[in-house]
Design a protein around this nucleic acid. Structure first.
Lengths: 342, 342
DNA sequence: TTGTAGGCGTTATCAC
DNA sequence: GTGATAACGCCTACAA
């Protein structure tokens, strides 16, 4: 087994000092041609690589980014993560991921674990538990320490930091408006319980579109699903007792399930009922009929978040008193497929 | 801004030595009650936390695990990752993820980046590029250095290390056998190009099941798709020119698309043609008809991989000459849904 | 041109 | 009981 070699090892073998080796490997002008060649050859032969940890300790820079997301099995978070990883990697950063599992406690524990030197900054989307509890002290502690933080998607006004969001309200508005322009009059909304700010914003867009187009708001057409796995019965019952010609769903899972419920009732999509979902993922593409969907451009969101974070990390003066924080808005777009008229 | 506090800071403030502080915080018997209380109170007040990096340098243990996977947007890898993260986190480890993007070069770069002290061990699935190139020197280098490595799913016999796989051949066999027992006689196979060992193994199971049940093997019924995104035209054409009553697909995307192709031709699933896919993900559940699928139990696979790795990392004697490496087989199971008779 | 010394933050050993 | 010292691996200002 070839153990990892250190500067000290090289110095001992070549009978020079550690600092000479260090300088020689950096091609310093101070060192003679001869010594440099000797050291570099030796280093190459034994495949010397500086120890990241030692460098981190010295520089107080880890080149690691901490990402805390509620869930990785959800397509949206996966794509955002992809964007983060891509951008970060290209800039020489590694990504440490923790899943909060929608739990406040796990979010706190994970943040504390990483905040003690393991990372240079955080990118995160708030867990459901945190939003419910409305407690952001763990975030504040991190920012107070001068650790850069970027929030995306599930953000809060309570914390001053860089943010990346999508124009949820507008996107929902556009989606509903599209259906209205296609002649739909009774449009339902399938959403989740309200502590997710994104759901709230999307609902806002839904209501606003109806009002702007002088359509009545009927609360019977709004289904708020609990955040559990087995809520399929609820949505099935919902669709059985309402009469609609359009649905907006806040994610693609609900949308695909809605299509199924409608088809089971003998209704045709899109002829009888149009369906639009959020999250333009694989489900949307492969559904039958394929799903018209609001693309959230998760990957771009992730890249943007990583960019904001790295800029902040590498800023000349990271500890200025009143930094100007940015909130970038990623514009959602509607991808038209078979579940609506086109 | 409250900067992070160190042992030195506490020592200076309380006018004691650094080592006294260190011991006091560890509740050492050597230190007097008084001093301990004083130090601990101060540390608590200023929210002292030891610096992870310094501890890593000292202990030569980072408590980080490196995970290198070809892709995170694929459901299977996502679930495996979930399992890894869960297990690792419970044991106090953090997970650093790199995406190789199916590229040999990225895989190599990422491994080198992490191998220089950033992690205590690797969990990985080989990229397509690596399997194609059949070059495993970067893995060998890592194991030669005594860094524990666990391969999962996409493994190779070239490297001696712990492995976690599923019984692909058997699973495919079972799936085909099920269709045969349901009276299907002309069963197609939709697979990917052969450098993925999993595809090869699944194909083996397919052929073996046909042979064991005395059904003729017809190569016209086997479609090998290139690993590109726009191979949909190819599969469409394939289904138009063959006459079948069953299909086995090596992933759920192909399976859902096959259903669609068949339906477009006016065929009914499962009445006219049965369809079984691999990867029991969200697509399988939400497809219409829902998809009978081979569940790979990715999360369990991830947990197992993490367990093997951590055991190896924490082993008494990590550098023994001839360790006995284990290969754990996760048993796949068939989840029956609407796309086959039941 | 090369080497010494100090420091990054922590811990462990040993001396006082 | 407490503190000085060395070490983990690297870097760099300064001395020789």
């Amino acid at each position: 087994m070839k153990r990892k070699i250190t500067l000290k090892d090289i110095a001992r073998e070549l009978d020079v000092s550690i600092s000479t080796v260090s300088k020689a490997l950096k091609n310093s002008e101070e060192i003679s041609r001869d010594t440099k060649e000797k050291v570099q050859a030796f280093a190459k032969l034994y495949n010397y690589r500086p120890n990241n940890i030692a460098i981190s300790l010295k520089n107080k820079r880890t080149k690691n980014i901490g990402v805390i997301i509620p869930d990785i099995v959800h397509h949206f978070f996966t794509t955002v993560f992809r964007g983060i990883e891509k951008f970060a990697n290209a800039r020489g950063y590694n990504v440490i991921v923790c899943i909060s599992d929608e739990s406040f406690d796990k979010e706190v524990i994970n943040m504390e674990m990483l905040a003690n030197g393991s990372i240079d900054g955080f990118i995160m989307a708030l867990s459901a538990g945190t939003q419910l509890k409305n407690d952001y002290n763990h975030l504040r502690e991190v920012t107070d320490q001068g650790i850069p933080l970027v929030l995306f998607d599930r953000v809060t006004d309570e914390i001053a930091c860089d943010k990346v969001v999508i124009n949820d309200t507008e996107a929902a508005y556009m989606a509903v408006e599209k259906m209205i322009k296609d002649g739909r009059k009774r449009i339902a909304l399938v959403t989740t319980e309200g502590h997710f700010n994104v759901s709230v914003k999307r609902a806002e867009g839904y209501y606003k579109a109806l009002k702007d187009h002088k359509l009545p708001v009927d609360e019977d057409l709004v289904l708020t699903l609990p955040n559990t796995y087995d809520n399929e019965g609820i949505s099935k019952a919902f669709f059985e007792k309402i009469d609609i010609d359009g649905v907006l769903c806040v994610n693609e899972i609900y949308a695909v399930r809605s299509i199924r419920h409608l088809q089971d009732q003998g209704k045709k999509v899109p002829e009888d009922v149009a369906v639009i979902g959020f999250t333009d993922g694989i489900l949307s593409k492969l559904a039958n009929p394929s799903l018209t969907s609001v693309a959230q451009h998760g990957e771009r969101m992730g890249e943007m978040a990583a960019q904001l974070l790295i800029e902040r990390i590498e800023a000349e003066n990271p500890y200025e008193k009143d930094p100007v924080y940015r909130t970038e808005v990623i514009k959602a777009s509607i991808v038209e497929r078979e579940s609506t008229n086109n």
